[in-house]
């Protein structure tokens, strides 16, 4: 008797192939999202909102309806979709350059309004698609193409901590930062994204998950070095954790 141990999620296109750089974190996270949508049986009822950056080509990977948004405006487009189709599942997929830099105002206000949508924000501490420029989440000292001598706090300030800030908004039901640097962390990440999805499914409010992900190409590291860099360096600045979970009280 055969036992099915691996299946391509229905929420991914059959002929879709990830086109990310070797070691990039996007593929893992998209796979997690697709698996969860399958688990919740949401493939037929989901509208995904893409953003600008390496996060943009959702329609090339997902077997889902996709609406595209301009730089930073995915939460607004998602708001428009969700308010018109309250019974559909709506999520935005953005990077740190999109959700935390050009669009952080929109992200915060969407959280404050308590929109019943979910945002997955990939944080690789730089603008990946445009070639590795410094973003709002770039670490002090980090070398990027626009901070060749390393980010200097006295010139460009300090990294923005998205998940912590979003957790302070009253409309946020769930906010967490996760990493995908190990099998254990990937399981944790899936758990967090599941929680954020449930916040929407159960009508509790805005769900936000920030995923620390590697960008080996722009970091000029090997995939292995990139993973170690996240665990050893980035997590000291952007710590992992659940910063808000309004269901946690009930669970205790």
């Amino acid at each position: 008797m055969e036992t099915l141990v691996y299946k391509r999620p229905e929420s991914l296109l059959k002929d879709g192939h990830f086109t990310f750089c070797p070691g990039c974190g996007h593929g893992v996270v998209l796979r997690i999202i697709a698996e969860l949508l399958d688990e919740f049986n949401l493939q037929k009822d989901t509208i995904a909102i893409s953003s600008v950056g390496c996060s943009i080509f959702l329609e090339k990977f997902f077997n889902l309806d996709v609406a595209g948004a301009s730089h930073g405006r995915s939460p607004c487009v998602a708001t428009g979709v969700k308010r018109c189709k309250p019974d559909k599942f709506v999520f935005t997929y953005q990077g740190d350059g999109d959700a935390a830099t050009i669009g952080f105002n929109e992200t915060i206000h969407t959280a404050c309004r308590g929109e019943h949508i979910t945002t997955i924000m990939i944080n690789n501490t730089n603008f990946g698609m445009t070639g590795g420029q410094a973003s709002a989440t770039t670490l002090v000292g980090q070398v990027t193409t626009t901070t060749p001598a390393g980010r200097k706090a006295e010139l460009t300030g300090y990294p923005l901590h998205a998940a912590e800030i979003i957790s302070k908004c009253d409309g946020t039901a769930y906010s967490a930062r996760v990493a995908i640097t190990s099998t254990k962390n990937i399981m944790q990440a899936k758990k967090a994204i599941k929680k954020a999805f449930e916040a929407q499914i159960n009508g509790l409010g805005y769900g936000f998950v920030e995923v620390l992900a590697a960008c080996p190409t722009n970091w000029h590291m090997t995939p292995v070095e990139s993973v170690e860099h996240i665990d050893n360096v980035i997590e000291t600045v952007h710590p992992l954790g659940v910063f808000k979970d309004i269901t946690a009280q009930e669970n205790k």
Partner: peptide, 24 residues
């Protein structure tokens, strides 16, 4: 029906886009 005072005109027109993609 839906009424939102958006955080900016950027936000309001992009909310219109969201609604528009659903044919609303």
């Amino acid at each position: 029906r839906v009424f939102i005072t958006a955080e900016s005109e950027l936000a309001s027109i992009n909310m219109v886009i969201g609604a528009g993609t659903t044919g609303t």
